[in-house]
Write a protein that binds this DNA or RNA. Structure first.
Length: 506
RNA sequence: GGUCUGUUCGUCUAGGGGUUAGGACACCAGAUUUUCAUUCUGGUAACACGGGUUCGAUUCCCGUACAGACUACCA
């Protein structure tokens, strides 16, 4: 079998969309599974859309999720350069071959003329408003102009090279996911292959580079399916059909509500990220928060993404990257688009947080929370907050009361539970605490029980009041351990403050 | 409009000519817990529609509907 060589080929026009990450992932899984090669190629043939920093962003994003590039931009390789703009000179000869063989031609139409052609065809009720076999003979090109005129126009430099699509052919694409897709050549237009700035278009560049780089599988989004027959035609005309890569067009990632391709706009509306890392648009200065900065773990994101459009056929849900590499197969990729369900992503994240060792989370807390506590305390905080966290920052944000005394108290709890009995027990408890030098969860509890017993009140009746006094909240982790972490003196201070501040409802 | 692709619980999906149509997320209920969360148990919930083929179709075929993608000198 042919060596597996796959490529991820984004264009540096902005941040990498999460759908692009999934495409890269599937390519990567196939490569790793087959001891193949993962190639990163930058498709920057549109100079007008180039965004500074985008390429670096793509590199950083792939690195963050754990996709390693074997060959390509930033690492080099036998087929360098991997940036299409740097391969510019290379494409011309192939366009020339196409022309020499009569499979392509020069065209000189202006934008206005193209618009006029489309308007005319539309007005005539023509289904097909393309620059193609039905219209090319009415246009300004080397097929309709005399050799002299053509030569003159070519010398003036303002020309484009278009593919001459043959009439009356059924063009077939064998897609690994969808099976045989057949398109009548009359539906394919005479796509521009070389632009007037001398750059190839995606269609030419992608075919030439995939051939030159000996790509075995083209795994890309479904939006490319309609132009796949055109690419097949190109392979054929260039004489490369037997080395043509296999195609797999991935189902799209859809918006969570309604329909349509997942977009940044939709993500913004629903309040979730769409880019792996935070991205600052250099043109507008607008900042879009990334999955990383939102607290998603790369392993969780990958696991979630892998399952959007693919599944192993077993009931296992949690997969490490290595497990995904082993389990992956193109045959099990779905055909239908998948709605992006951020709740499922959060569930995966929660599972991965749970599986993260406490000391890892504790050092993260020390580094990111802005709180200064000992490692020992950090570990205790992690152990009680971890299971209620979806994101790492939940540990210190939801556990803020572990670092500083509450400024406000939950009103609904206070009005319901802060009563004379509570004050009585808490006062007795406070006194009992003053009599000891230190507390842990066990002693805090027995002290509380005896304090409550001394005033003949059940502990259960005042637990909520005690919690709100200590933490300001009506809910939270185990109170006794909370008090152990806080320490005796701090607990007494907080109880004092609560007793002096909170009013018993009449 | 045209071309292409698709359609199993709200969502991600398994399955496949005869199944109680399975799992996960979400949701609801119960248990546990000092509260909330976790955990556990249980529950609600799906084969888009219409024809065929067949003893039998959710599964195969054909239509219809709906949805999406594409329809640039963008990728």
């Amino acid at each position: 079998m042919r060596d597996v060589r796959v490529r991820f080929a984004p264009s540096p026009t902005g941040a990498l969309h999460i759908g692009g990450v999934r495409t890269a992932l599937y390519n990567y899984l196939l490569a790793r599974q087959n001891n193949g090669t993962m190639i990163l190629r930058i498709e920057d043939t549109d100079q007008g859309r180039f965004v500074p920093g985008a390429e670096e962003y793509i590199l950083n994003s792939l690195a963050w999720v754990g996709i390693k590039i074997d060959e390509g931009v930033s690492v080099g390789g036998p087929h360098a350069p991997y940036r299409q703009s740097e391969r510019k000179a290379l494409y011309k000869q192939y366009a020339q071959k196409l022309i020499d063989d009569g499979n392509a031609y020069y065209a000189f139409d202006t934008e206005a003329e193209l618009d006029a052609m489309r308007d005319k065809l539309k007005a005539a009720g023509n289904d097909n408003q393309q620059y193609g076999m039905h219209s090319r003979m009415q246009m300004k090109n080397s097929l309709t102009l005399s050799a002299d005129e053509t030569k003159k126009l070519i010398e003036s430099g303002a020309y484009v090279i278009r593919l001459k699509v043959p009439a009356g052919e059924q063009i077939q694409v064998n897609d690994l996911i969808r099976g045989l897709v057949t398109v009548d050549s009359s539906q394919i237009d005479d796509k521009v292959l070389m632009k007037s700035d001398g750059m190839p278009t995606y269609h030419l560049a992608n075919v030439v580079d995939d051939y030159l780089m000996n790509i075995s599988h083209v795994i890309r989004g479904e939006e490319w399916l309609p132009s796949a027959p055109l690419h097949v035609l190109l392979y054929r005309f260039l004489g490369w059909e037997k080395n043509m890569p296999q195609f797999a067009h991935l189902p799209l990632l859809l918006k969570p509500d309604g329909n349509g391709k997942l977009s940044k706009r939709a993500a913004d509306q629903m309040g979730f990220p769409i880019f792996p890392l935070t991205w600052k648009d250099p043109a507008t200065g607008e900042v879009a928060k990334g999955f990383k900065e939102s607290g998603y773990l790369p392993e969780a994101l990958i696991n979630f993404l892998a399952f959007l459009g693919w599944n192993p056929g077993t009931e296992q849900e949690i997969f490490s990257l290595n497990e995904l590499i082993n389990a992956f197969s193109i045959e099990r990729i779905n055909k239908a688009g998948a709605k992006f369900d951020i709740q499922k992503a959060q569930w995966f994240n929660q599972q991965y947080i749970k599986a993260t060792p406490n000391d890892v989370l504790a050092s993260q807390l020390l580094k990111e929370s802005g709180q200064s506590v000992s490692m020992e305390t950090a570990l205790k905080i992690v152990s009680i907050m971890k299971e209620r966290a979806t994101f790492p920052q939940d540990i210190w944000e939801q556990g803020a009361f572990l670092f500083s005394a509450p400024q406000v108290f939950d009103d609904s709890v206070v009005s319901k539970k802060w009563n004379d009995e509570a004050v009585k027990v808490i006062t007795a408890y406070k006194n009992a605490l003053s009599g000891v030098t230190t507390i842990d969860a066990t002693s805090a509890k027995s002290l509380l029980e005896s304090a409550a017993a001394s005033v003949n009140i059940g502990v259960g009746k005042i637990m909520q009041a005690l919690r709100v006094a200590v933490t300001g909240n009506g809910s939270g982790p185990d109170l006794m351990i909370t008090m152990e972490i806080l320490g005796k003196d701090e607990v007494i201070r907080r109880l004092d403050y609560a007793v002096n501040t909170l009013k018993v409802k009449a």
